[in-house]
């Protein structure tokens, strides 16, 4: 049901029956390693290309999530998935493996919450009983496509971010026990004219702020309603800008509530410059770390604002600025 200008309230409160996350070697050394279901030592996952490795990540997350819910692939009505690759091949190839009716989406790194909000909408509108929402990214395949070869010796500036090698999946159901998806706010494209692909945090921060403002305007809520408001992958630079920008717009979100998945996932001594990015960042942190904490009763209500930079390798060579977007999804326990 539409709420305000750009939000949905899910009255039937679709349940996240289960969630699963898969990570790579760098994530295994990170802060949230314990929250992954499967961690790989090998960046290639035994495949002969990085693209196939990313597909494998996503396939494993999807298999695991179905297994954890105690269901079979045949029980899934729809599969909604996105990633960063050209023509979203990891998602589509995973859909080929699953054999489940599939909706491919692209919202860059915001695909995780774009997928979750659409999945919740499908369940809430009774268009489906079980929907699988997933997203993935792979460090090497993303670097290869968007920047330089992985072994190329270009110095990265301090604003650069590290693409997460990981996939996260959540299984939504019309009934059951677990955290519930209660609402979503769909973002607008915001472009502040930043064109440096090594400075995504600054480019995406205004989109996150725009969506957060829209969310609280539409739901007429106080920020303290949530235990955590986490942006997707702004990194240290973008997180700081986001925090200050919210203050500038007279939105006072207490410091301990506002956080960023891209700041959380890696340890301080890992050489990730400003932090993490990628669909896999918000997907693994949300479907792993945050949902685990909700199930342990540490968090009651969370708002995930997944941010995405909607550029292509060609668009920035043609000196186009980077249009950005953010989608917010609220997940609540015991409602």
């Amino acid at each position: 049901m539409l709420k305000g200008h750009s939000s949905w309230v899910f009255d039937s409160k679709p349940v996240i029956l289960s969630s699963a996350t898969v990570g790579g070697p760098f994530e295994a050394k990170g802060n949230l390693a314990d929250d992954f279901d499967i961690l790989h030592e090998d960046l290639w996952l035994g495949q002969d290309s990085f693209e196939k490795a990313e597909k494998k990540l996503l396939e494993q997350a999807c298999e695991k999530v179905v297994e954890k819910a105690g269901l079979k692939k045949e029980d899934i009505d729809f599969f909604v998935s996105g990633d960063l690759m050209n023509q979203i091949t990891p998602s589509s190839f995973t859909a080929r493996t699953l054999g489940v009716p599939y909706l491919g989406i692209f919202g860059a790194c915001s695909s995780s919450m774009e997928g979750l909000s659409l999945a919740a909408l499908l369940v809430d509108s009774k268009a489906a009983n079980h929907v699988l929402a997933a997203a993935s990214s792979h460090n090497a395949s993303a670097e290869k496509q968007f920047r330089y070869p992985n072994e190329y010796g270009a110095q990265k500036p301090p604003t650069a971010q590290w693409t997460v090698t990981g996939a996260g999946a959540a299984l939504l159901s019309a009934k059951g026990e677990g955290p519930k998806v209660t609402g979503a706010t769909i973002g607008r494209v915001v472009d502040m004219g930043i064109s440096d692909p090594f400075n995504m945090g600054s480019a995406m921060a205004p989109a996150a702020v725009d969506t957060i403002q829209a969310h609280f305007r539409d739901f007429n809520r106080d920020p303290a309603y949530y235990d955590v408001i986490a942006t997707g992958d702004l990194g240290k630079v973008g997180h700081r800008i986001c925090k200050d920008l919210l203050q500038k717009h007279a939105m006072n979100i207490p410091e301990h509530i506002l956080t960023d998945c891209g700041v959380m996932i890696y340890k301080k001594d890992q050489p990730v410059m400003a932090g993490a990015s990628g669909c896999g960042c918000s997907a693994t942190v949300t479907y792993g770390h945050f949902l685990n904490r909700m199930k342990r009763g540490e968090l009651k209500r969370i708002l995930i604002v997944a941010t995405g930079a909607l550029m292509s390798p060609m668009s920035y060579q043609q000196k186009e600025s980077i249009p950005c977007i953010a989608h917010a999804v609220s997940i609540e326990m015991e409602v």
Binding site: P158, T159, G193, I194, N199, V237, I241, D244
Partner: peptide
Amino acid sequence: YQAFAKEREP
């Protein structure tokens, strides 16, 4: 905005 962001970038 870019001036605002620039102040906050390392």
